[in-house]
Design a protein around this nucleic acid. Sequence first.
DNA 1: TAATTATGAAATAAATTTTCATTATTCTCG
DNA 2: CGAGAATAATGAAAATTTATTTCATAATTA
Lengths: 282, 282
Amino acid sequence: MNVLEKIANELDTFSKSERKVAEVILSSPGTVIHASIAALAKQANISEPTVNRFCRRLDTKGYPDFKLHLAQSLANGTPYVNRHVDENDTAEEYTDKIFESTMASLELARKSLDANVINRAVDVLTQANKVSFFGLGASAVVAHDALNKFFRFNVPVVYFDDILMQRMSAINSRQGDVVVVISHTGRTKSLVEVATLAKENDAIVIGITTEGSPLSKECNIVLSVDVAEDTDLYMPMSSRIAQLALIDVLATGFTLRRGTKFRDNLKKVKDSLRSSRFERKD
Amino acid sequence: MNVLEKIANELDTFSKSERKVAEVILSSPGTVIHASIAALAKQANISEPTVNRFCRRLDTKGYPDFKLHLAQSLANGTPYVNRHVDENDTAEEYTDKIFESTMASLELARKSLDANVINRAVDVLTQANKVSFFGLGASAVVAHDALNKFFRFNVPVVYFDDILMQRMSAINSRQGDVVVVISHTGRTKSLVEVATLAKENDAIVIGITTEGSPLSKECNIVLSVDVAEDTDLYMPMSSRIAQLALIDVLATGFTLRRGTKFRDNLKKVKDSLRSSRFERKD
DNA sequence: TAATTATGAAATAAATTTTCATTATTCTCG
DNA sequence: CGAGAATAATGAAAATTTATTTCATAATTA
């Protein structure tokens, strides 16, 4: 955890003087990283040793080390603050803003992912008899991409972006099947129903959605991808990119789990595409 | 710019001794942030004042300040280092690596994009009678996503991921039509042919591909997205995410060009989806 | 009221920066 | 081309700044 968050969290376990330091730090961390221990002590109206003790309490080696950690916390928090696209932006400006907020979303999404859950999802996927990916709208794109990835693994895999096909497929699922339902909001009625149907038919349901959404409640495993959707001009942007990165993670976990021999197989699939391409001349 | 990059950039403007320091820092920045100036000087076999001068040369106040900057560079994800997924990585490790290299690719892609070309592409798109998106494999996903975005704009737009349909559609195109052909390598034969056909039938062809590829030579406008595809375990990963971000950029440019009234329209599309959703309770 | 804990003044220790003399490098002109 | 002046680079040691420890006192709790 980052030091700033830690300070905020443990605020009530501090002593009176320590809390004074904490407050000064929280109110302007950017200043603190350039201040000496004496300066900070003075600003908080307490003595230098108290600041030092405060630093150690936070599992840092001392004041300089604490400043290092603080600097890193700041670096993680500040880089890409919300940069909204503006009416009068030039192409260069809005391009930069979109790329930056996409990167910021990925950063956020990464933090929100739980490695244990990913592990379980990979477990389940590697053992599946059949894998289905369902999504609608922007999430259909993600499901489509997942199909592209997993089809190379030589596992029975299907993808539907049509409500009726999804329903039929869900109803026909059985024990050993895995159904991955993708929906950023987790509120799309028909997808929630599909998840329920699949679960009722003994499939394992993995949801790529927001924690606590109606969809998440129907899933056996919930991969929650948090992103701030504020760049969106009424269109899903960041969320689907974070979801795609998650698909990459699952696919990677899958191949790692399957071992080396399996990866030779992937190479074969790739080589088989060669004849449809123009040769590279370099 | 971050200090690490700066050191790497200015490596040849340094004096002999300064370069020694630089090399030590670049080889293990993580250690340096915990070392004293004396320790670093010793490791680089130079004197302490030299380290100090080195720090000031990089526009920092002195050694402690330099360490702060260095710590922040490191916190930002060490973009320049390639973090390959390893056989024995834990879920947490490969997740981090994938997200990080995805972000690094986006950074790279952004730098490779030319705002003028984007502007021209947006121009052409806003004036199109009909827009078609073609891609195969991983790029089909990108085309699919583009369809999702552009369909909201109330412009005739189609998407095909089937070779025959693409050919037929290309042959039927006419002046005023825009065909967007997506292929990371730009070497997929059938797509190059589709681009040629479309151009022969007076459509404007926009290529989202690599500069200098066979496909790029058939296009009127080339949006080149450079990414280092080295994370890929025989699967396209970063490239398609960069392409998707580019689609976001084009879609954003499109809406900005169309003005405010047009955006009200987008809101309507979004509202029309509401009834298919579970209401949010908060 | 005793025991415990928190705090700060002063002393000590550590680290950084400055000063200045020495050494290396570059440039100039015979 | 090379001697020597000018300039730049470097490090030893001193000075300064900064951080830490020690220990006595004050506040809090039992």
